[in-house]
C-alpha cells in the first residue's frame, strides 16, 4: 500500500483521481478498519491530508459571506445570533480544535464533545473531517455540529459545493461525498450569547469509549428564562444523528424546569428507535436519551 502526501488541493485532487486511492485523515478509524479487512479489500493508495496547509485553518468570518446561510436559529437577522461563522479546516485534529480559542469561546458545545472524544492520543491524530466522513452514528462531533446547523464544504477537481451537514450524513458509514471529492472545511454559525450550549456523552467508561447515547443541546432563552428555541441532537440512537422536533417544540415557551424537561423526555422516549448492541440495549438507550434532557435543568 502506498501513502502519498500532497501539499496542495490540486495535488490532492490529482492523487484522488488515481484508481484505488483513498483519503487518510488521522487514520484513527481507517487504519483500524483496514487491519480487520481482508487484504484484497484494501485501497491501493492512501492520500494523506496531513501536509495540506489549507485544510488546517480555523477562522471566524462574517456570516454574510457564506451563501444561503442563515443564522443558527432561523433567519440571520433574528436577535440572539452573532451573524458570524467559524470555518474549521477539515484536517484540524481534535486536539487542535479543542485548544483553539475560537472553538472554546464560540462553540463550547463542540469543545465539550471534543474533550471526551477518544483519548489524548486519539485526539492528537484524529481529525474533524475524519470524524464526519466516518459517519458513525456515535461520532462525537456529529450531534454538536448538527445542532449548530453546520455546513460542510466539499471540493473536487471540478469545483466546490456546500451541503448542510444533515444532508451530508446519509447513514452509518455513508456520506454524500462523490468519488474524487474531499471534505475541505466545516462552516459553523456562531450562536448568540443568549444560547445555552450543552453536550453530554454516555459511554461505558471515561475514555476510549464509544458513545452509547450522546446529546447536544442548544437552547436560546428569552426574556424571563423562557425558552425561545431549542435544538436537540442525539448520537448513537439511530442510523444517523437523531433530532426530535416534537421535543424541541414542546420546550418552547417553557422554562428549563424538570417538569418541562420531563415532558419533553417522554416525547423523546416515545419516538426514538434505538437498537441493541454489545454496548447497550435499546431499552437503556431509549431511557437515557430522554433522561439526558433533565441535565439541562442544571444549565
Amino acid at each position: 500500500m502506498n501513502v502519498v502526501f500532497p501539499r496542495s488541493l490540486p495535488e490532492l485532487f490529482a492523487a484522488l483521481a488515481e484508481p484505488g486511492a483513498r483519503i487518510l485523515a488521522g487514520g484513527t478509524d481507517l487504519l483500524v478498519r483496514l487491519r480487520a479487512q481482508p487484504e484484497a479489500a484494501a485501497p491501493a493508495t492512501l492520500v494523506s491530508l496531513e501536509r495540506i496547509a489549507a485544510l488546517h485553518n480555523v477562522a471566524e468570518e462574517a456570516g454574510g459571506q457564506s451563501h444561503s446561510l442563515d443564522g443558527v436559529f432561523g433567519p440571520a437577522r433574528l436577535p440572539g445570533t452573532l451573524h458570524r461563522v467559524v470555518r474549521l479546516g477539515a484536517a484540524c485534529t481534535h486536539a487542535e480544535l479543542l485548544a483553539h480559542p475560537l472553538v472554546r469561546a464560540r462553540l463550547p458545545v463542540l469543545a465539550q464533545a471534543l474533550a471526551v472524544l477518544g483519548s489524548p492520543p486519539v485526539r492528537n491524530m484524529g481529525t474533524l473531517g475524519g470524524n464526519l466522513c466516518t459517519a458513525s452514528p456515535a461520532g462525537d462531533c456529529l450531534p454538536p455540529l448538527l445542532a449548530l446547523g453546520a455546513e460542510v464544504e466539499l471540493a473536487s477537481a471540478s469545483g466546490a459545493r456546500r451541503l448542510a451537514l444533515a444532508d451530508f450524513l446519509l447513514g452509518p458509514g455513508r456520506t454524500a461525498l462523490a468519488p474524487g471529492e474531499a471534505l475541505i472545511a466545516v462552516h459553523v454559525p456562531v450562536p448568540g450569547v443568549d444560547v445555552r450550549q450543552h453536550f453530554e456523552k454516555v459511554g461505558r467508561r471515561e475514555a476510549l469509549a464509544v458513545a452509547v447515547v450522546s446529546l447536544a443541546a442548544l437552547v436560546r432563552l428569552g426574556h424571563g428564562g423562557i425558552i425561545a428555541e431549542a435544538r436537540l441532537a442525539w448520537g448513537s440512537v439511530g442510523p444517523t444523528v437523531w433530532r426530535c422536533p416534537e421535543a424541541e417544540a414542546a420546550l418552547i415557551g417553557r422554562r428549563l424546569s424538570l417538569t418541562a424537561l420531563s415532558e419533553a423526555a417522554a416525547l423523546v422516549r416515545a419516538r426514538v428507535r434505538p437498537i441493541d448492541d454489545v454496548r447497550a440495549s435499546a431499552d437503556y438507550r431509549r431511557e437515557v436519551a430522554g433522561n439526558l434532557l433533565l441535565r439541562l435543568a442544571e444549565l
Binding site: 467508561r205 471515561e206 475514555a207 476510549l208 464509544v210
Partner: peptide, 16 residues
Amino acid sequence: IQTRDLSTCLIPTALD
C-alpha cells in the same frame, strides 16, 4: 465472544 477486542472489552482507563 461478543466483546472481541479492547474497544468492547472495556478494561478501566486511568480516568475510570
